[in-house]
């Protein structure tokens, strides 16, 4: 029982790390970034470049891959989404059109990765030994990923809660028009949150290639879907929500594998659909 609980929490923490970026991006900018999983893969591949030739510890290159990807995020936003934000008449139209941009980005990033790195699976296996927690044994790297997830979420929380910048972000998320009136440069906030979202995506990508080491250019969609599930479960723009959502999904998946593994996948999605019907704004979402 204990092993499932702790294992589920560790696994859920990784999911929370995957989801936090998408939640930020969608929460603040109202752009549903369907290419999120592909951006996450960019993080994996940057880690891989260093690992492959120089055997550099993936944890050391975390910052670097995060920074590169966040710059990339800024570029993506400035080149593609900025125009949409400026020209879209309503939030609904923005969501609608950005979805189409994301289809293009998915094709673009996926095939660029395949073209540059080839399609053979890559990985940066590291810290694979076991570690003991409360008498149960776990993989070291999942523990590291869970710690990283906690740190990232804590930083994000402080950033949003206690800084001026965070205040501006929250204001933009909740009242875009009002925020503009009181002099917040909405576009800047959008770009910043988009790039921070890409940064955390890259961190999650590095963790994934470290833990599973079976990354190909076509695995991105899985992570997008995971992030979407947690976004819905936790609620738009809520950090607590994405953490709790991640943990719930993680524990539910673990419990399902234990009880009846063959039903684990459908149950997660059916859970999501039920959640959407009962409480569409998520556990912690604001209307």
């Amino acid at each position: 029982m204990l092993d499932i609980a702790i294992g589920g929490v560790l696994f859920g923490a990784l999911y929370a790390l995957i989801a936090v970026g998408l939640n930020l991006q969608y929460g603040v900018t109202r752009i549903l970034n369907l290419a999120y999983g592909e951006i996450l893969l960019i993080g994996s591949y940057i880690t891989y470049i260093f690992f492959k030739d120089f055997r550099i510890n993936p944890l050391l290159t975390l910052i670097f891959s995060g920074l590169v990807t966040s710059v990339l995020g800024i570029l993506i936003h400035v080149i593609t989404f900025r125009r949409l934000v400026l020209s879209a008449a309503s939030a609904e139209e923005l969501e609608f059109r950005s979805l189409f941009v994301c289809f293009g980005l998915i094709l673009l990033i996926q095939n660029l990765l395949a073209h540059i790195f080839g399609v053979t699976p890559i990985g940066t296996p590291y810290l694979m030994e076991g570690v003991e927690i409360f008498g149960e044994r776990f993989k070291m790297n999942t523990v590291v990923a869970a710690i990283l997830s906690a740190v990232v979420n804590a930083i994000m929380y402080t950033l949003l809660r206690f800084t001026k910048f965070g205040l501006a972000m929250r204001a933009t998320a909740e009242e875009p028009v009002g925020a503009q009136i009181i002099g917040i440069n909405i576009l800047k906030i959008h770009i910043a949150s988009f790039s921070v979202g890409c940064l955390t995506a890259a961190l999650a990508g590095s963790m994934i290639s470290m833990i599973y080491s079976n990354v190909t250019p076509y695995t991105g969609t899985i992570y997008t879907v995971i992030a979407l599930i947690i976004l819905v479960l936790g609620g738009r723009g809520s950090f607590i929500g994405s953490i709790v959502g991640g943990l719930i999904i993680g524990c539910a998946y673990y419990a399902m594998i234990r009880v009846r593994a063959s039903l684990a996948d459908p149950v997660i999605y059916i859970l999501l659909i039920i959640m959407l019907l009962v409480r569409p704004r998520g556990l912690f979402g604001r209307q």
């Binding site: 593609t80 125009r83 949409l84 059109r97 950005s98 189409f100 941009v101 289809f103 293009g104 980005l105 998915i106 094709l107 673009l108 990033i109 996926q110 095939n111 660029l112 395949a114 073209h115």
Partner: peptide
């Protein structure tokens, strides 16, 4: 790969 990269760019342009 080349075709899909170009297609991706075209789709982004159309959306823009």
């Amino acid at each position: 790969h080349h075709f899909l990269i170009v297609l991706g760019i075209i789709i982004v342009i159309i959306a823009e």
